[in-house]
Nucleic acid binder design. Structure first.
Length: 488
RNA sequence: CGGGGCGUAGCGCAGCUUGGCAGCGCGCUUGGUUCGGGACCAAGAGGCCGCGGGUUCAAAUCCCGCCGCUCCGACCA
C-alpha cells in the first residue's frame, strides 16, 4: 500500500507522533467508545466501550470470587460526618467530593457526600457485622460508580464519575491483611497482563503517593506508548486506621477485644484507557482478543452474480465460529468492503475474515490480523481451529510487543544529568536510586515533573541492576532503586 | 484554580477583521447502479451560529458575564 493511501485511510485520526493526546481523543470518539456528557468531566460510555468494561468485569469478577470474595452493594451517599472520621482520609478526599445539601425540596440536616470511595460507609457497616474472630476474615467486593471532582479530566483516564470495583476485607492479624493486600495485587497483575495484554511493574507507593488513610499502598504501573506511566490498579493495607475510628473490634481467640486489620483494592474504567494507549496505532484501536467485544468480523465481498452464495457462506462461517468466538457479520450493503475494513480496524477488531467469490472458489476465507496487518488464507476445514489459534497468537503478540516496548523504554541513569535528559528526550520508566527522603522526591518532582511510581519488589528486577547506590538527587550513599516517570 | 486555544447542521470547517438572506466538504434520507482497502449518479432533509445580557434600525460578527471542550501548569486517586 502506498504511503499516500496509508495517509488517506487515517485522515480522521491525528497521528500519534503529531499529538498523542489528540490521537487518544480522536480514537475514543471515533471508535465510539464514549461521548461527552453535558456535565463537566462526565462521559457516556457507549455500547462498544461498555462491552469492553463488561468483559473486564466478567474476567476479573471470576478471579475475585475464586479468591474467596463475595459481591455486595453499599450506598452511593455517605453522611459527611462518616467521611470525616479518619483524619488522613478526609484530608485526602475533601477537596474532591461532591456534596448533596438538599433532598425532597428541603435542606438536609446532615450533608451527604457522594462516595469518592467507600471505606467510610463500608467500615460503618462492618462495625455492626463483626463481633468475633469467627466473623473473620470478611471478604467483600463491590462494583459501582464513584465521583471525584477532578480539575483536569480525560476520557477513561480521569473522569468526574467513573466505574470501578473496590474490595474491602477485614482480618484478624496484620500478617493476614498484608497477605491479602499482596494477593490481590498479584491477581491484578496476572489479570491485566494475561487478559489486557498490558505489562505492568509492581511495587510499593511512597508515603506521599499512598492512599489517604492507608498504612501502605501497592500498585501496578503500566507504560503508555508516549512514555508516560499510568497507575493501573492499587491494593492498600489499611492497617487498623479505619478500624480504630469506625470501631471495628472483635473478640479474638483468647477472648481479648482487638481492633481488626483491613485492606482495600481497586481497578477502574481507567484500564480501558490503558488498553488504548498501550496497543493502539495510527489506524485506531488494537484490542486484545480476550476483552474485544468483537473478536472476528466477517466482511462479505458481494458481487452481482455471487451475492447469495457469498452471504450464505458468511452466515455459515459465523455459525461455525460462534460460540465460543465473538463474531460480527457485517452484512451492511450500503458500505463498500474497503470502508468496512477501515472502520473495523479503527475499532480494533483483532481478526477480519473476508469472504468473496475467489475465497469460495478456493474453499476458504481470507483472514487479516489487526496486530500485524498480515493477510492469510484459511481453508474451511480447519477454520475454527485456525481462528482459535490466531486469536491466541494475537493476544500473545500484543503482550510481547508491549513488554518489549516497556523494556526498551526503561532506563537506568547513573547521574542526575543523565536522569533529567532521559526524562526530557525519551521519557519512559527510569530506575534510579532514592534515599527515601521526601525532600528528594519533591525536588525531582518540582524540577522534572516525574514522580516515584513505585518502589519495586526485588524479584521484579528484570531491568538491569537493582543495586543500591547514591541517591540520584542528593547523592547520599543510601539510595535504593525506585521507578520514576511522568504519569497520567 | 491560573495561562493559552476553541465553540457555526451528525463530523470537519469557512464566514467575524470592516454588523445587512447561514455557507462548503463529508456524513444522513430516498431511488438506482456498484462492491477484493473509505464507490458513483440523481433528488432531498437538516441551524437557539454554546448560554445569558448589552450596544444597534439590524448581531454568528462588536462589548460584558457564564458554561463546555482542549493544551500547559497547580492540585489529586
Amino acid at each position: 500500500m502506498s504511503a499516500k493511501n496509508e495517509k488517506e485511510f487515517v485522515k480522521e485520526v491525528t497521528p500519534r507522533e503529531v499529538d498523542f493526546s489528540q490521537w487518544y481523543l480522536d480514537i475514543v470518539l471515533k471508535a465510539e467508545m464514549m461521548d461527552y456528557a453535558p456535565v463537566k468531566g462526565c462521559m457516556a460510555i457507549r455500547p462498544y466501550g461498555y462491552a469492553i468494561w463488561e468483559n473486564i468485569q466478567r474476567l476479573l469478577d471470576r478471579r475475585i470470587k475464586e479468591t474467596g470474595h463475595e459481591n455486595a452493594y453499599f450506598p452511593l451517599f455517605i453522611p459527611e460526618g462518616l467521611l470525616q472520621k479518619e483524619a488522613d482520609h478526609v484530608e485526602g478526599f475533601a477537596p474532591e467530593v461532591a456534596l448533596v445539601t438538599q433532598g425532597g425540596g428541603e435542606k438536609l440536616s446532615e450533608r451527604l457526600v457522594v462516595r469518592p470511595t467507600s471505606e467510610a460507609i463500608i467500615c460503618n457497616m462492618y462495625s455492626r457485622w463483626i463481633q468475633s474472630w469467627r466473623d473473620l476474615p470478611l471478604l467483600v467486593n463491590q462494583w459501582c460508580n464513584v465521583v471525584r471532582w477532578e480539575k483536569n479530566t480525560r476520557p477513561f483516564l480521569r473522569t468526574t464519575e467513573f466505574l470501578w470495583q473496590e474490595g474491602h476485607t477485614v482480618h484478624e492479624t496484620e500478617e493476614e491483611a498484608e497477605e491479602e493486600t499482596l494477593k490481590m495485587l498479584a491477581v491484578y497483575r496476572e489479570f491485566v497482563q494475561s487478559e489486557l495484554a498490558v505489562p505492568v511493574i509492581t511495587g510499593l507507593k511512597t508515603e506521599s503517593e499512598k492512599f489517604a488513610g492507608a498504612l501502605r499502598t501497592y500498585t501496578i504501573e503500566a507504560l503508555m506508548a508516549d512514555g508516560r506511566a499510568l497507575q493501573a490498579g492499587t491494593s492498600h493495607n489499611l492497617g487498623q486506621h479505619f478500624a480504630r475510628v469506625f470501631d471495628i473490634q472483635f473478640l479474638d481467640r483468647s477472648g481479648e477485644l482487638k481492633y481488626a486489620w483491613q485492606t482495600s483494592w481497586g481497578v477502574s474504567t481507567r484500564l480501558i484507557g490503558a488498553i488504548i494507549m498501550v496497543h493502539g496505532d495510527d489506524r485506531g484501536l488494537k484490542l486484545p482478543p480476550r476483552v474485544a467485544p468483537v473478536q472476528v468480523v466477517v466482511v462479505p465481498i458481494i458481487t452481482k452474480k455471487q451475492r447469495e452464495t457469498v452471504l450464505q457462506k458468511c452466515a455459515e462461517t459465523g455459525e461455525r465460529l460462534s460460540p465460543p468466538v465473538r463474531v460480527k457479520l457485517d452484512l451492511r450493503e450500503e458500505y463498500s468492503p474497503g470502508w468496512k475494513f477501515n472502520e473495523w480496524e479503527m475499532k480494533g477488531v483483532p481478526l477480519r475474515l473476508e469472504i468473496g467469490p475467489r475465497d469460495i472458489e478456493k474453499g476458504g476465507v481470507t483472514a487479516v490480523r489487526r496486530d500485524t496487518g498480515e493477510k492469510l488464507f484459511l481453508p474451511q476445514e480447519d477454520l475454527p481451529a485456525r481462528v482459535d489459534s490466531l486469536l491466541a497468537e494475537i493476544q500473545d503478540n500484543l503482550f510481547k510487543l508491549a513488554d518489549r516496548f516497556r523494556r526498551d523504554n526503561t532506563h537506568r541513569p547513573s547521574s542526575y544529568e543523565e536522569f533529567t535528559s532521559l526524562l526530557e528526550e525519551k521519557r519512559g520508566l527510569i530506575l534510579a536510586n532514592w534515599c527515601g527522603e521526601e525532600s528528594c522526591e519533591d525536588g525531582v518532582k518540582n524540577k522534572t515533573r516525574a514522580t516515584i511510581r513505585c518502589m519495586p519488589f526485588a524479584e521484579d528486577a528484570e531491568n538491569g541492576n537493582m543495586e543500591a547506590g547514591p541517591c540520584i538527587y542528593c547523592g547520599r550513599e543510601k539510595g535504593t532503586p525506585v521507578y520514576f516517570a511522568r504519569a497520567y
